[in-house]
């Protein structure tokens, strides 16, 4: 044990200096994490939101690049008016996506769902209402890591999405 004046104490100034440096560095790390969090690196935010496909094209999908395990996320599919045939739209989502998420809710419930091998087709009846069809799906990731796959219109265009799911 060291002696400082009359005190028998375990003080170590070199260690203390290193500790202050670590504290200072950690403060900046914390600040960086908060800023990146606000920007959306760990979930929703400007750098996380993205669109697959052309907004004026046949189909586009708005989604978040960064999602979290067990966290709620949403994916919005927009289909151009000219893709509606006989009052219905048939959209498909590849199994590589659906295997990794739990579907929670559709903003517009599909009227029919069928499995087609490595993809699932959702049929939406649009009725006579013209205009573009927008469908939001809420889902939860139940994996860690990458979620990637395609979303498309049956016998039509498709777009690819890729997400990173944090633990």
């Amino acid at each position: 044990m060291k002696q400082i004046g009359d005190l028998e104490i375990d003080q170590d100034l070199d260690f203390q200096k290193r500790e202050w440096i670590v504290e200072r560095v950690s403060w900046f790390v914390g600040l960086a994490i908060i800023i990146l969090g606000l920007l959306g690196l760990f979930g929703t935010g400007p750098i996380s939101s993205t669109t697959a496909g052309d907004a004026n094209g046949p189909i586009s999908v708005d989604y978040q690049r960064f999602v979290r395990h067990n966290g709620e996320m949403s994916l919005t599919m927009t289909v151009a008016p000219d893709q509606v045939q006989d009052g219905q739209v048939e959209l498909w989502i590849s199994a590589t996506i659906l295997d990794k998420v739990d579907l929670q809710q559709f903003s517009h419930e599909p009227d029919e769902v069928r499995n087609e091998g490595d993809r699932t087709v959702f049929v939406f009846l649009t009725g006579d209402t013209p205009g573009q069809l927008t469908i939001t799906v809420n889902m939860r990731s139940h994996v860690f890591g990458r979620i990637a796959g395609d979303i498309g219109i049956v016998d039509g265009s498709q777009v690819s999405i890729s997400q990173l799911s944090y633990p």
């Binding site: 400082i4 004046g5 005190l7 104490i9 375990d10 003080q11 170590d12 260690f15 203390q16 500790e19």
Partner: peptide, 12 residues
């Protein structure tokens, strides 16, 4: 020290 820290004399 990395886990439990060390004391520091403030008035000597």
């Amino acid at each position: 020290p990395w886990v439990e820290d060390m004391p520091l004399v403030l008035v000597e």
